[in-house]
């Protein structure tokens, strides 16, 4: 009897193994096919890489500064010192400050709009079901279009400068945060809203006293997360002329001011990493404090 059972299980196992193998073959086959198709579409081939890598190496060695260890702390006139590399530091610092402010302003605008719209786009608390569908689709559209496309449009409308970038990032942020906030709102327990309604509170006071206190920690932490993303976005949105340090970076790359490229990129990396670290600290602290 045990032999029979063993045989049954063995046959079951081998059949499962067979289907598993077939699946694996199918997956590998599909991956290979899509690999081949996409490499032909974007002419990804060996000679391209072999030709390109030395050029990339050349470019990188060109943009890296020629620092001389003996002269590293000399003044900005001597070639090979840090000051010579960063002779334009004041300008960069101002542009970085502008970039930071762009992120602050656009995150704030996006936060306020998203918070207002999220009450309409949360299924459980929306005042009007048609409004729910409308606002939801609207937010989807807002976040579906990349920031930089909006930026091209707004540069056209508002002129070159940080204002266009701020508008573009705010709109995208509204869409992205609106969705997250709406999801938070949908997970809220509605008992406190019922209590407020039974005391004669209107929809507005339900939202203010029933929903906001509960969702605030999550909302703030999402906003800070978005702030980190927006810092990155505002460093590059200048590529289309929408302000911030990206505009300068685009300029120096296109005019081949080699050493300035690495100077700006290094500053951007330092800023982004510093803001990521501090924002994640603040986020943990805020969420912890409100939950306590």
């Amino acid at each position: 009897m045990s032999n029979k059972l063993l045989e049954k299980h063995l046959s079951l196992y081998s059949s499962q193994l067979k289907t598993r193998k077939l699946w694996n073959i199918l997956v590998v086959f599909l991956l290979t096919i899509s690999f081949l198709i996409s490499s032909t579409i974007i002419d990804f081939n060996f000679s391209n890489i072999v030709n390109g890598v030395p050029r990339l190496g050349d470019y990188i060695s060109q943009i890296l500064p020629s620092l001389d260890i003996n002269l590293i702390f000399e003044n900005s006139e001597t070639e090979g010192s840090i000051k010579y590399w960063y002779f334009n530091f004041k300008k960069y610092a101002f542009l970085l400050y502008e970039t930071f402010n762009m992120a602050v302003v656009s995150t704030t605008i996006g936060f306020v709009l998203a918070l207002i719209l999220s009450f309409f786009s949360a299924r459980n608390i929306t005042p009007n079901i048609y409004g729910y569908y409308f606002v939801k689709r609207f937010l989807e559209f807002l976040r579906g279009v990349p920031e930089i496309i909006y930026a091209i449009l707004f540069v056209w409308a508002l002129g070159i400068g940080p204002l266009a970038g701020i508008m573009a990032i705010s709109i995208h942020t509204t869409g992205a945060l609106g969705k997250l906030f709406a999801e938070v709102n949908e997970n809220v327990d509605l008992k406190s809203c019922e209590a407020i309604r039974s005391h004669g509170g209107n929809w507005l006071s339900e939202m203010r006293y029933g929903i906001i206190p509960k969702v605030l920690p999550n909302v703030i932490s999402y906003t800070l997360l978005r702030f980190e993303i927006n810092i990155r976005a505002s460093t590059v949105i200048g590529f289309v002329g929408a302000g911030g340090i990206g505009q300068e970076l685009y300029l120096v790359i296109n005019f081949n001011y080699y050493e300035e490229v690495s100077a700006i990129i290094l500053l951007i990396i330092i800023t982004v990493i510093a803001i990521d670290i501090s924002s994640s600290r603040v986020r943990q602290k805020i969420v912890g404090e409100i939950n306590d």
Binding site: I41, I42, D43, F44, N48, G52, R55, L56, D58, Y59, I148, R232, A233, T235, V236, F239, L249, Y250, I253, I265, I268, I269, I270, V272, I273
Partner: peptide, 24 residues
């Protein structure tokens, strides 16, 4: 990770020329 994807793109476009290969 600190460098945005668009900055990589612009560097690769300088090195490899215009086209989807730089994007890849």
């Amino acid at each position: 990770r600190g460098v945005d994807i668009l900055i990589w793109a612009i560097i690769y476009v300088r090195a490899f020329g215009l086209g989807p290969f730089a994007g890849l």
